[in-house]
């Protein structure tokens, strides 16, 4: 049970290649999930009962199924249909990368639907009514007032979801894509060293997840900079420092004003 630094160094290019594949898939899935999720969120929130039911079923199926099963369904199941096999669509579905991005994207988008829906319904009525009273067309009110506020409310949940699905991209090994885990496995198969490649890959995953987390936190600070009036934290030291967040780094001793208007103001 030893860590072989020489092996870690020589296997670095292969692992970085795998890491690049992981990043590529993550970014593509985020894009697919954002587009699909936004569209399906509108369907889910539609006033038309039938459309809303379709949206609800979409969320239930794609959120309830493990992503690896969705990958198998897209990669092995869809080519069963002649509409996929006998048309130019086949060019797309023959590619494992496309199938992986579509399968994970379906899974991710179902979560995006629910996060966006939660954010949109948390927007208080006041700003929307004010914008409508000013004569702005409803479409502009949605794009310029409701959506920006909903994005701010949902950002934390979205961050959690992205971090979880970044880790679930390991499932793409099932459709023969060599991502970071696949690269580490390959090196294990060649050297029979169970620790060095897997631990190195683990360190890379750790850097990826934590880098992404820091990025999201910076975005959160930037989007909520109008709340930057940080109040000094006067709670007792024990309460103050016992934030249950997963952060490894020390938190600043200031407390952000609540992003949402509190139910009852205390003046």
């Amino acid at each position: 049970m030893t860590f072989d630094f020489a092996l870690a160094w020589t296997s670095l290019p292969a692992l970085l290649n795998g890491a690049w594949m992981t990043v590529l898939i993550t970014v593509s899935v985020m894009a697919v999930g954002a587009v699909l999720g936004f569209g399906m969120c509108l369907v889910r929130m539609s006033r038309n009962r039938a459309l809303a039911a379709i949206g609800a079923a979409y969320v239930a199926v794609f959120r309830g199924a493990p992503s690896i099963v969705l990958l198998y369904l897209v990669y092995a199941g869809l080519p069963q249909l002649s509409i996929v096999r006998d048309t130019p669509l086949w060019l797309l579905f023959a590619s494992p990368l496309f199938c992986a991005i579509l399968g994970l994207g379906l899974n991710h988008s179902a979560y995006v639907v629910e996060i966006l829906r939660g954010g949109l319904s948390a927007v208080p009525a006041g700003p929307v009514e004010a914008a409508l009273a000013l004569g702005l067309p409803p479409r502009i009110v949605f794009v310029k007032v409701r959506l920006p506020m909903a994005v701010r409310y949902g950002l934390k949940a979205y961050q959690n979801e992205v971090l979880i699905f970044l880790k679930s991209t390991v499932a793409v090994g099932a459709v023969t894509i060599a991502d970071l885990t696949g690269a580490a496995n390959e090196i294990f198969a060649m050297t029979y060293d169970p620790f060095t490649p897997l631990v190195t890959a683990g360190a890379m995953y750790w850097l990826l997840t934590n880098g992404l987390r820091l990025g999201f936190e910076a975005l959160d600070r930037r989007l909520n900079r109008h709340l930057a009036a940080t109040v000094p934290d006067r709670r007792p030291a024990t309460v103050r420092r016992s934030r249950p967040g997963l952060s490894l780094f020390r938190q600043p001793l200031v407390r952000r004003l609540p992003a949402k208007p509190a139910a009852r103001e205390t003046h």
């Binding site: 049970m1 880790k167 679930s168 991209t169 390991v170 499932a171 090994g173 885990t181 580490a184 496995n185 294990f188 169970p194 620790f195 897997l198 631990v199 890959a201 683990g202 995953y205 750790w206 997840t209 934590n210 997963l246 490894l248």
Partner: peptide
């Protein structure tokens, strides 16, 4: 907690599956 929540569970499964005996 940072390590366990920062890496995919499949990687840990592989690590314990291949290297469990040595550990």
């Amino acid at each position: 907690a940072s390590v366990a929540t920062g890496i995919p569970s499949l990687l840990v499964i592989f690590l314990l599956y291949y290297g469990g005996t040595e550990i």
